[in-house]
Design a protein around this nucleic acid. Structure first.
Lengths: 110, 110
DNA sequence: TATTGATATTGCAATATTACGATAAATATT
DNA sequence: AATATTTATCGTAATATTGCAATATCAATA
């Protein structure tokens, strides 16, 4: 098969999986970190920053955009990519919630 | 090609990518959430909980274990799986850090 | 308008992932 | 010891991902 059975899971589970999957490649983690580092919304020098060819970077950017992690707006001849806070806040609150619950639980097993 | 060029990225970036990738499938998100829900370390009824065949679930558990997100210990004839706090804390602090920085930055773009 | 610069798309090869039936391995129970 | 229960592994088919060269697109500028 090879196709994920998304329909069997909740919307929330799928939403988290989509965000996590988008960050499931070091190049995409590096892109997010680069966008964090440069204060202004950087455009296409992401390509120069990464050890990958331009089409590959473009593809990774597309995946991050599809997942909702970044936004891109056309700026003349170039494109201005930047982080979409909403997605990262969603991840932050998801994992904070889990950590809080784990803290309370205090393992009686394993 | 199809093989990720991990060697070009930092250890930290690879580490986050590995954890994120492991959560990049709704079944694995569901497994983590189930392990959170049941108070005791549940064993093999994860299979009954998911809409997937036993070998598929076993494979997902293996991936979560390889990524360090869960631990498994043999409990007689069954296996006791449970969440590995360290990994989830790592994700929590990573995304909290990002959210905090984004808060300060307050977008002047996009 | 021809050229340049920046980004996206296409097409393809290599590899990885997802899913499951069949089966193996290991412990528990009878 | 034979059987049942639980989990892992193997083998395989379907699909997805990764990466890049070649090329297309599209705005800016000469």
């Amino acid at each position: 098969m090879g196709a994920t059975k998304t329909e069997h899971f909740t919307d929330k589970q799928n939403a988290i999986a989509i965000l996590a999957k988008a960050l499931g490649h070091p190049a995409r983690v590096a892109i997010i970190e680069y966008l964090m580092k440069v204060d202004t919304c950087i455009c296409g020098d992401i390509v120069n920053e990464l050890p990958l060819a331009q089409p590959t970077v473009s593809q990774h950017l597309k995946e991050l955009k599809n997942a909702g992690l970044i936004k891109g707006s056309i700026e003349g001849n170039a494109i201005c990519y930047c982080i979409d806070e909403k997605a990262l806040d969603k991840l932050q609150s998801y994992f904070s919630n889990i950590s809080t619950k784990l803290e309370k639980k205090k393992k009686d097993c394993c």
